[in-house]
């Protein structure tokens, strides 16, 4: 198969990741600080270690994890398939063919709206919830990608034959074997 034409998402995605993780760390900080300050049994040094560890995690999320996640996150819109690659340490590469797409959604959180970003969510009949979420797309890219996919799906012509059939095969029309290497 030809090399996939990977396209990166918007560079503003890094900012979005940083905002998200800062909020998460902030919430953890609040949850941890309350008992650390109010409960006398917890000595100050424990609190300081806790805060330092959280600080280190926060900084590494912001300056190591977020840029790396952005570098990995990419999508490839091919003629008949859509590919998505995400992850920082654990990489995931998901692919869906156009003829299995059920419906599409565009979602925007308040921060995404602020940064002019959107998520394109692609649903198939396999499994619960979203099957493919392309994060960090510029709003206009998300709309263009969705419209393109919708146009392709609209053009689709279903064949009347079924994929699975039972009973003896009449003339054994052995299809080309998929394992050709």
């Amino acid at each position: 198969m030809d090399e996939l034409n990977w396209r990166r998402v918007s560079p503003r995605y890094v900012a979005l990741l940083r905002i998200d993780k800062t909020i998460l760390c902030g919430l953890i900080l609040i949850a941890f600080s309350f008992p650390a300050v109010l409960v006398d049994a917890i000595p100050l040094w424990v609190a300081i270690i806790g805060w330092s560890v959280l600080g280190v995690i926060w900084l590494s999320l912001l300056f190591l994890w977020a840029p790396r996640r952005f570098r990995v996150t990419a999508y490839a819109s091919e003629e008949k398939e859509l590919h998505l690659r995400v992850g920082a340490l654990w990489h995931r590469h998901t692919a869906v063919t156009h003829n299995r797409i059920q419906h599409l959604e565009i979602e925007q959180s308040p921060f995404e709206r602020m940064l002019g970003l959107a998520r394109l969510i692609i649903f198939t009949a396999g499994g619960s919830g979203a099957d493919l979420t392309i994060p960090g797309l510029a709003r206009e890219d998300a709309t263009a990608l969705r419209d393109g996919l919708l146009a392709v799906i609209r053009e689709e012509q279903l064949d009347d034959a079924a994929i699975t059939e039972a009973g003896p095969v009449a003339t054994e029309p052995q299809e080309r074997n998929g394992k050709d290497d």
Partner: peptide, 18 residues
């Protein structure tokens, strides 16, 4: 599974697997 009834396919890899 009938291969052509595929809905989506995901390849994943952890650091050790890499």
């Amino acid at each position: 599974m009938p291969a052509a009834k595929l809905q989506h396919v995901r390849m994943s890899q952890g650091p050790l697997q890499r």
